[in-house]
Every structure is written in C-alpha cells, then in structure tokens.
C-alpha cells in the first residue's frame, strides 16, 4: 500500500510544474499579465468546494466539502458542511473560527503574526493579488489546452518550513483548483464548483461574515 501511494504521489508532484515558466522581471508573459489583471478585478465570488487532504501518516485522505464566499473588501468565508459544520472567516485583521458546538476562536493578526501571515497569503490567492504574492513566492505560469496553471514556490525560509509549493489552476478568469504541498508531506487538493462572480454580495451573504 505504501509503495502504491509513493508511486502515485511522485509523478503527480513532478508533473505539476513541468510546463510552467518563471514569471519575473522582463520574463513576464503577456497572458499571465492579463490573467492576473482579470483575477484582480473579481469583487465577490461564491463557490462550493470539495477538499481531499492527504495526511502523510494516514492511509486514507480526509474528505470534506462546503461553501466559499470571497469579498474583496471584507475577506474570505469558508464553511465546512461535511463531515461536520465549522466556519472560518478571514478578514484583514483577524481569523475567526466557530465549530458546530458554537465554540468561537479569534486569532488577531497582531497576536499571532506568523499564523496570520499564512492566512494573508490565502487572501492574496483568492483576490489574485500577484504583487503581494511576489513578495513571498517565485511565480510560475503555464497554459495547457485553455487551462492555465500558476505555480508558487516560497522564497523565505520561514514559509519553506511550512509549504513546499502551491499550484492554482483554472479556466478563463476562474480558479478551479488549488493544490498545496506542505513541507511535512501533507497534500491538500481543493476543487471549486458552481463558481459565481458578482459586483456585490447579497445582504444575507454579507451577514455570514459576522460570526
């Protein structure tokens, strides 16, 4: 079983970046420039997600699904509905989580800057803020059959201790998939579906951010 898992993971991680080119200085492709500009114009976004988290020491991946809402001016609302309910709201100053027992935890940016720093990176991914991402990652880009891929490799040793790389992929101006390779060997694969973009959130959706 272990052997099969290794055979499956190695080609998967090597193929991920093979066609991608480093985007820096003068070597920024116009397609990538256009894509980052388009991604950064998204004001709000709603989607369903399904997540498979492969934890190195566990035989089976942890499967979960839920709802995602992104609002550029507020932040990210991440609600897990299966296998149990739990909600996380990330805004510019804090991360708040609440589980199905009603237990609420708030982590302020100034209290845990390291932890909050990572959540800020995810805000940048959702908002297509490539300028912020450039500060923390080497950015790679590639286009395969109308599907684009953006690869991120951490620059700082602090970030390298946690993350090996991230791969975002999608079509047109929509992110459809995010894969995160953590330094401890864990892999998180998130797929988005039913993605809807709008210039403004409904009042009901806006209220969901108030945990």
């Amino acid at each position: 079983m272990k052997l099969m898992l290794i055979v499956f993971l190695i080609p998967f991680s090597l193929l991920a970046f093979e066609d991608l080119k480093l985007q820096s200085g003068k070597n920024i492709e116009p397609e990538f420039k256009a894509l980052s500009q388009n991604l950064s114009t998204t004001k709000t976004l709603k989607a369903n997600f399904s997540q498979a988290k492969k934890i190195k020491v566990l035989k089976r991946p942890l499967l979960s699904s839920g709802e995602l809402i992104f609002d550029r001016s507020i932040g990210v609302f991440w609600k897990l509905t299966k296998p149990f309910e739990s909600t996380v709201v990330i805004d510019k100053n804090k991360l708040t989580s609440i589980d199905d027992d009603g237990k609420k935890i708030t982590i302020k940016a100034e209290d845990k800057p390291m932890l909050y720093g990572f959540t800020k990176i995810f805000l940048s991914i959702f908002s297509g803020n490539t300028e912020e991402l450039k500060k923390h990652f080497k950015i790679y880009y590639g286009l395969k059959n109308s599907e684009w891929e953006i690869g991120l490799i951490p620059k700082s040793s602090e970030l390298k201790k946690v993350l090996s790389k991230i791969l975002l992929s999608g079509k047109k101006n929509t992110v459809e998939k995010i894969i995160l390779w953590e330094s401890n060997g864990d892999i998180t694969d998130i797929n988005f579906s039913n993605t809807k973009k709008a210039s403004k959130l409904s009042e009901a959706d806006e209220k969901k951010f108030e945990l």
């Binding site: 934890i55 979960s64 897990l80 739990s86 996380v88 959540t119 401890n184």
Partner: peptide
C-alpha cells in the same frame, strides 16, 4: 475536527 481545520498542519 482539528485535522479538518484550516490549522491542521500544526497537528498533522
């Protein structure tokens, strides 16, 4: 639940 949380890396 900790393994499913957004901070699961701290534990796994």
């Amino acid at each position: 639940k900790k393994l499913y949380s957004t901070q699961s890396s701290l534990y796994s």
